[in-house]
C-alpha cells in the first residue's frame, strides 16, 4: 500500500517564499529548536507539508509541527508553539 502512496512532503526550503513575508532574513536559514525533541537545525532542513493551504514544517526527527503557517486570503497566520526558540544572525 505504501508503495502507491503519493509523496506530498517537500523540504522546508519550499516554504521560504511564503515565509519571506514575515522574515527579513532568508527564512530557510532561521535556526529552530524543536519543542518536541530538542532537535536543533535550520528551517530548510524541516519537512514541509500542506503547502496548498499554507505550510506545516515538521521536525525530521519526531514529526512535531515546529512552525505552522496558514495562507488565509490576505492574511498569513503563524503558529510557532512547536519551537522552543528561533534564532537569526544579526547583520552588522
Amino acid at each position: 500500500m505504501a508503495e502507491h502512496e503519493r509523496d506530498t512532503r517537500l523540504d522546508g526550503n519550499a516554504a521560504a517564499g511564503l515565509l519571506s513575508t514575515v522574515f527579513r532574513c532568508e527564512p530557510s536559514e532561521v535556526m529552530l529548536i524543536c519543542a518536541g525533541c530538542g532537535a536543533d537545525g535550520p528551517m530548510g532542513a524541516l519537512l514541509a507539508y500542506g503547502m496548498e493551504m499554507g505550510a506545516v514544517l515538521r521536525c525530521p526527527v519526531c514529526d512535531t509541527a515546529v512552525l505552522r503557517a496558514g495562507s488565509a486570503g490576505a492574511m498569513l497566520w503563524l503558529d510557532v508553539r512547536g519551537a522552543v526558540s528561533m534564532r537569526v544572525t544579526i547583520e552588522h
Binding site: D11, N13, A16, E26, S28, E29, P42, M43, G44, A45
Partner: peptide
C-alpha cells in the same frame, strides 16, 4: 516571480 529563495540548498 519572487526570489531568489532558499539559503539551505
Amino acid at each position: 516571480l519572487r526570489g531568489p529563495i532558499g539559503g539551505y540548498f
